[in-house]
Design a protein around this nucleic acid. Sequence first.
DNA 1: ATGGCTTATGGTAGCGTTAACACATCGTTG
DNA 2: CAACGATGTGTTAACGCTACCATAAGCCAT
Lengths: 358, 358
Amino acid sequence: MASKPPTRKPLRKRKRGDEAGPPRAARLEEVARMAGVSPITVSRALRNPDIVAEETRGRIAQAVKKIGYVRNFNAGALASRKTTTIGIIVPTIMDVGFAEVVHGFYDTMGEHNYQLLLGVSDYSEEVEERLVRDFLAHRAAGLILTGVSHGPEVRRMLTSMAVPTVEFWGLSRTPIDLCVGYSNADAAYAMTRHLVRLGYKKIAFVSPLIGTVMRDNDRTRDRREGHRKALRDSGQGIDESLFASGRLDFQSGANALVELMGKRPDIEAIFFGNDVMAAGALMECQKRGWAVPDKVAIAGFGDSELATVVQPALTTVRTPRHAMGKRAAELLLERIGGNTKVPKVVDMGFDVIQRDST
Amino acid sequence: MASKPPTRKPLRKRKRGDEAGPPRAARLEEVARMAGVSPITVSRALRNPDIVAEETRGRIAQAVKKIGYVRNFNAGALASRKTTTIGIIVPTIMDVGFAEVVHGFYDTMGEHNYQLLLGVSDYSEEVEERLVRDFLAHRAAGLILTGVSHGPEVRRMLTSMAVPTVEFWGLSRTPIDLCVGYSNADAAYAMTRHLVRLGYKKIAFVSPLIGTVMRDNDRTRDRREGHRKALRDSGQGIDESLFASGRLDFQSGANALVELMGKRPDIEAIFFGNDVMAAGALMECQKRGWAVPDKVAIAGFGDSELATVVQPALTTVRTPRHAMGKRAAELLLERIGGNTKVPKVVDMGFDVIQRDST
DNA sequence: ATGGCTTATGGTAGCGTTAACACATCGTTG
DNA sequence: CAACGATGTGTTAACGCTACCATAAGCCAT
């Protein structure tokens, strides 16, 4: 006893396939034994088939199939300090706009065999921070965040751990790492200028509010400011009675229309910060027999599928949602690959789409 | 000393903070050293604070903050053979229906500190199989699959690795593990019977087609069959000219309407397998000045937000999307917790919603 | 005082994989 | 024909954490 202080290996050498407990998943070693090679060769055959002799590879593939072996990314990640996991955080997935970005992103990342951790922040910076922490705990190879304003702790964690990150949907002068989007201010500015050019005066703006606690966000704010600036630059008077806001849904769009026309019957056009609200307003006009755009012109933002289907078809701003997701993926891949010369901020632009509602 | 042949530790003891390479993330051990405890105590303080003395916990929390320590789930998962990762696979996220299920699921799982791996199968069993394999490689604690028909390999992997699994959206007599949904056949049956009860004869059905290669799926097929059965049980003649199909979007809904009314002007009602198509048809009727429901009645499926907003408001079938997601999460949590007595198949039901379009 | 319980903490040995070398074999080349 | 690079495979030691015991200290009942 006295001289047996170090390893007492024989005691607890439970290695494998003991009696009790649930059956453990097959390991690389078992595949290796069956194929008559070493584990590292199996590992190579699975990750980088080209460097293993074809004949060996065949035996390994057979063994894998027979045993029903499934890789263990956790062990792999630990050993290699690398993962193929990407984290993406959006405020909600009930908005097709975000879904579209995720879609564009997912397609490209999927092709490159990355997996997606999805986080929904519900427009809360607090939740976002928790999600970022979780994703870092997974040692995600990269992160995608919505918008350009984030809590200070988020920024600190991301830079200190040097995780490739893409912020999307807005343009930032000080991105955490990379940034893909368009200028919401410019887009709203362009639409309002367009309306002015069409001859409308008294152009109102409606801000969509979101989240469980209704509030706006950097994108919505930028749009409202863009509108304001366009009014100023057009020499139109600005007046708080030209502004309204409401929940981001059809009904609130209708309500905002009624509210605005009630207190300012001289309004000639209403620019909604979101297509859904604009569509709601359009339907309300129809219900009330108000001619669009003769009595009042309606413009939206987003160019959702709705815009082309409502009557009259909706003038709106087309945002590059799918393209943003795709581009974000491409940049992230470059970044993960070690390319440090990728552009920091990518402006994807937007288009003002003139249809029949203005 | 003499008996020191094995480990030659001193040789490659690069342990940490060498010169070269990117800075590695902080480890448990560093936190432990700073807090004057052992690593295992830190581990406990992080995972199960209650069993660590409050005073110790405080010192640890301080050290974690100061060092900026972020847990490593990969290492944890390897050591404990447990993860807090759940995989969910949906055919697409561009359909709000699926988004809503994911939402209901996410909320509940998020509260319990699980992370979500999102997979999009694009309606392909092949892709689904790849995703399942990837998620198993992550050693996901549980899986959520859309629909009840899956490739044989999927079933094999899931059962052999004994991973808690919930299939949703349909009812299966032979679930892989658990199943939460409603009967699409019964729902369509109920709607058609409802239309018959309202006095309509010649009731057509339109199947939505999906995916990059347009095709239907188990849910759509069940709905069509439910409709057929209802026609039979009502003594109405069945005739292929009462059936149409088209891509799941507004325009195709309009097209299907025109096609059906063109070849069968005696049709009195059209039951669309999806609200979006029904809304498209409604808009087309309006454009053409066809009175709904007088000239032709329109019914949809899904009760999306659209249904209450279009004019006239759409009669449809309400499916329990959010509830399905929530229930799936609850069942999965029970299952992961080791409860083997959870119900295998949970029927969430549906509601026929009568509005103005029929 | 003894034993037994509870609470708080620590030591040791894996968990299943891959990085970094090491080595063996073979065809080339000057 | 020795030296050499290319090719294919193996050996060893981490990777960072937690399960599983062990231990220490305090408390209570005997």
